[in-house]
């Protein structure tokens, strides 16, 4: 039997400015080396759930356990690829410098070590971006940037990789490259992929968690193109929210 690495139980969450829950009574478990999709409509609370798993937001009630502890206590076991990287494209920073940031937090002071550089090279090789090692990060295409950010996430050798809408802003060709790479990575770690497109995740996932205020678990054989809209729009409740707003 596989070990449970994430356990969410009766989770409720709302933002400071809202009078109703963005997430309500969410419960699920994720085991090691599982590939899980989180799907749902825009505004349904998918990114909010991810931020709770990462420890960036705290729920008002319910429990979230990651490797048996509270979220945020194991920063090196969880890697995260954000939906949009907000950065200043004029910062002169190379691909290698970006990937090395994945080694942050290992020690309190000092520059990167030789081992950090080796880990970064290994991660860049794995994500097929080693040839851009010395290129400006901002000069890369959307798909290349995404692979660099995954390489950055991999340098700390995580046990869980969370990707928030990784197909946003990349073309079909790069989508396929990404899916192939994720399939390989799944042998080493659990992967949670957030998407509003079921087709994108359907070929890889063990199951999907539909988030639309509450949560429902569906297995790939239960979902097809015809009933997908019906599933995600069930009890449809779009709640406008800003992920940066403080919680109550």
């Amino acid at each position: 039997m596989k070990n449970i690495i994430i356990e969410v139980d009766k989770l409720n969450f709302t933002y400071e400015h809202l009078d109703k829950n963005v997430l309500e009574n969410i419960s699920f478990k994720i085991c090691e080396n599982e590939f899980v999709g989180i799907i749902g409509p825009n505004g349904g609370g998918k990114t909010t759930l991810v931020k709770i798993l990462l420890g960036l937001l705290s729920p008002q009630s319910g429990s979230v356990q990651i490797f048996g502890t509270k979220p945020g206590k194991n920063p090196h076991k969880i890697a995260y690829l954000p939906q949009h990287l907000v950065f200043d494209p004029q910062i002169p920073i190379t691909v290698e410098e970006v990937v090395l940031m994945g080694c942050l937090g290992h020690r309190f002071i000092g520059l990167y070590t030789q081992k950090d550089h080796q880990n970064a090279i290994e991660a860049m090789t794995k994500m097929n971006v080693i040839e851009y090692q010395n290129a400006f990060f901002s000069s890369l295409s959307g798909g290349q940037k995404q692979r660099v950010l995954i390489a950055r996430a991999l340098t700390c050798r995580p046990k869980i990789l969370i990707l928030d809408e990784p197909s946003a802003g990349i073309d079909t060709h790069h989508e396929q490259i990404l899916l192939d790479l994720l399939k390989k990575l799944n042998a080493e770690m659990s992967i949670i992929m957030v998407s509003h497109e079921y087709q994108f995740v359907s070929s890889l996932v063990d199951y999907v968690i539909c988030i639309n205020k509450d949560s429902h678990i569906h297995y790939p054989n239960e979902i097809n193109e015809k009933n997908f809209q019906e599933i995600i729009s069930k009890k449809y409740q779009y709640i406008a929210h800003d992920h940066e707003v403080k919680t109550k």
């Binding site: 960036l56 920063p75 090196h76 954000p82 990287l85 950065f87 200043d88 910062i91 920073i93 942050l104």
Partner: peptide, 12 residues
């Protein structure tokens, strides 16, 4: 300076 959210996730 580059990605504050990522730094926070790394426990910084």
């Amino acid at each position: 300076c580059f990605d504050e959210e990522f730094a926070r996730l790394r426990g910084i």
